[in-house]
């Protein structure tokens, strides 16, 4: 589904990703872990198409198509979703209005019929209930005045509504207390399915107790230095990231 080969990317002239390769197949949950500054968020932003990131080398294909050549909205319509590390507050844009515009734009781009407001509200109400969200949040402006936890939950709620094929969670666990973390994880787990892939970017192993990944990759200095299964995350928790560098001096220096 997602195939990243030798990806190099920089922002503001500084190279952040230095030859990253990764493949995510439908139904798989991949966790990307790594120390601060390793390039985790850059990876998510490059995949979603945030302006300002420059890809200097390598390829990314999504279902065989060149993802890097697509506008952000086209990537979304193709099924790529980024849950933001810092969801943006947009005063004056009503949440429900925004979500309907987003969903219908995606449906239109895919050649599907748009939902009218009745159909849409029905869908939204069901998803709100599933996510345990406060329905009032829908009537507010996008993320405006939301607590940190509400913002993160809203990201997962949007994901549930838009039903992407590849969901990228960028440190969705950061800033969450344990209850919120469990709720967010439950929301994600409910979306796991054989035809959906996940890229879970996190600094801590904690989230992976609740969203158990099929694969864990350690990202350091812009490249993946170690891959394994869920056990790798626990070893990292026990030994710290320095442990990876010690084990793999050759690759880390390459």
């Amino acid at each position: 589904m997602l195939k990243i080969e030798n990806l190099h990317a920089r922002i503001g002239g500084k190279e952040i990703l230095k030859g990253l390769s990764l493949q995510v197949k439908a139904g798989e949950v991949h966790a990307i872990m790594g120390p601060n500054g390793a390039g985790k968020s850059t990876l998510g932003n490059v995949l979603a198409g945030r302006p300002g990131y420059e890809v200097t080398e390598g390829t990314v294909t999504f279902d065989g198509a060149n993802l890097l050549g697509m506008e952000p909205e086209a990537r979304a319509a193709a099924g790529v979703f980024l849950a933001f590390q810092y969801p943006v507050e947009i005063p004056g844009v009503n949440n429900t209005y925004f979500l309907r515009a987003a969903l219908n734009a995606q449906r239109k781009a895919r050649g599907e019929a748009e939902l009218d407001s009745v159909e849409f509200l029905k869908l939204v109400r069901a998803k709100v209930k599933d996510m345990g969200m406060t329905p009032e949040l829908l009537n507010r402006a996008v993320n405006e005045g939301f607590s940190g936890g509400e913002k993160k939950r809203n990201e997962v709620f949007q994901m549930a509504l838009l039903e992407p094929r590849l969901a990228i969670l960028d440190e969705t666990d950061s800033g969450l207390d344990i209850d919120a973390l469990k709720q967010v994880a439950a929301g994600v787990n409910a979306l796991r399915s054989p035809d959906r892939g996940f890229l879970v970017i996190t600094h801590y192993q904690r989230l992976l107790d609740y969203i158990v990944p099929d694969f864990v990759h350690v990202l350091a200095d812009g490249t993946i230095v170690e891959s394994g299964d869920a056990r790798l995350a626990r070893e990292l928790e026990a030994h710290g990231y320095a442990w990876v560098r010690e084990r793999r001096p050759a690759e880390a220096d390459a």
Partner: peptide
Amino acid sequence: DEGMLFYLRSRGVPLDLARHMLVRAF
């Protein structure tokens, strides 16, 4: 605001509509 614009687009809202939404909100 480029950050707001990207957020809207990342959810599938086309560039023109995203700009319209932000101007109206403004």
